[in-house]
């Protein structure tokens, strides 16, 4: 068995968060290598209770009432091997008036036959704020299935923001399914930015239900695919209370033989609610590209810059 500190260092280095964690004693973190907790540090106001299981870890994460965590909290889930399965069960409770920003680094730099699954139950209590930035690093050839599932409850005045981003490597298969219920005056923001190529498959199913008065929600998806990659996006936003407001936005740039599909579903069940949606799928916008080409960029350079902007 390798020394745990070496494994921690390797995984954090691969996640590029090594110095951020070790240089700051006020930063809380949890590092999970497959089904083993190899690093854990809490700070006052945060409870992290992990339980190792056969193929993953069951984690209870609580931010206590009124506690506002100023520094980001780092969760690092990963595997350094090429093959294997990791199942993360995450039970999150952000208590009243608490606030926390989580950076979840899911790191599989050598992926060749990896399955990474997450099942999360998240409750954000009254006037609490929870931001979850999920950053993925995969191997250069894909060989990975990423299946995050979450059920989220936003109580009155709560705020939930989530961003999913693939920083490096190939997608493989990404299959996201988030479902959020939003009570009065709560705010939901979900954003996914993914670039796929080869035979990558991207599936996104995000739902927000604006059940309370003045609840607000925005579901944003930005995807660029090329080669024979496919992307399917099913975004659903419903509003059933007065003054609920929402927007669904899906942009997908498609190149080569890639295929994109977007199915926005918006439903309003209250005459004082309002939801809009916007979707654009297909080639790079001609005017954008021609403007860049008129400055001397080649077509490929122009496309690359436009995609960089879209995914930034």
């Amino acid at each position: 068995m390798e020394d745990k500190s070496i494994l921690v260092a390797e995984l954090l280095e691969a996640s590029r968060i090594h110095t951020r964690i070790h240089d700051d004693p006020e930063v809380a973190y949890l590092v999970v290598l497959r089904n083993e907790v190899i690093g854990l540090k809490a700070v006052p106001g945060i409870e992290v209770v992990p339980r190792e299981e056969t193929d993953g870890v069951d984690i209870h994460f609580t931010v206590q009432e009124g506690v506002q965590i100023s520094k980001p909290v780092y969760l690092c889930f990963g595997m350094l091997s090429a093959e294997g399965k990791q199942h993360i069960k995450l039970n999150v409770s952000i208590q009243k008036n608490a606030r926390v920003n989580i950076f979840a680094h899911c790191t599989f730099p050598n992926s060749g036959g990896i399955v990474h699954r997450m099942d999360a139950d998240i409750e954000i209590q009254e006037h609490a704020r929870y931001s979850y930035y999920e950053r993925h690093i995969h191997g250069p050839d894909g060989g990975i299935e990423v299946v995050p599932r979450a059920k989220v409850i936003l109580n009155e005045g709560a705020y939930f923001k989530t961003e999913f981003e693939l920083l490096r490597g190939r997608v493989g298969l990404i299959d996201i399914d988030y479902d959020c219920r939003c009570r009065a005056h709560s705010v939901l923001e979900m954003l996914a930015r993914i670039s796929g190529r080869g035979d990558d498959t991207i599936k996104i199913r995000e739902s927000g239900h604006l059940d309370g008065e003045y609840a607000r929600g925005v579901l944003t998806t930005k995807i660029a695919i090329r080669d024979k990659a496919t992307a399917e996006v099913y975004n659903t936003l419903t509003a059933s209370a007065p003054y609920a407001r929402g927007h669904v936005d899906c942009k997908e740039i498609v190149q080569d033989q890639a295929r994109a599909k977007a199915v926005p579903i918006i439903e309003v069940r209250n005459s004082k609610a309002h939801i809009t949606h916007e979707a654009a799928l297909g080639s790079v916008d001609t005017k954008q590209l021609q403007t860049l080409m008129s400055r001397g960029l080649s077509e490929d350079e122009g496309v690359e810059l436009i995609i960089k902007g879209l995914l930034s």
Binding site: K222, K251, D285, K287, Q288, T291, L292, R295, G296, L297, E301, L305, I306, K308, G309, L310, L311, S312
Partner: peptide, 17 residues
Amino acid sequence: EPARYEGLLVKDFLLAS
């Protein structure tokens, strides 16, 4: 009517130009 670029920073556009 100049093009709009989602997410592209003015700095990056000007550097590219």
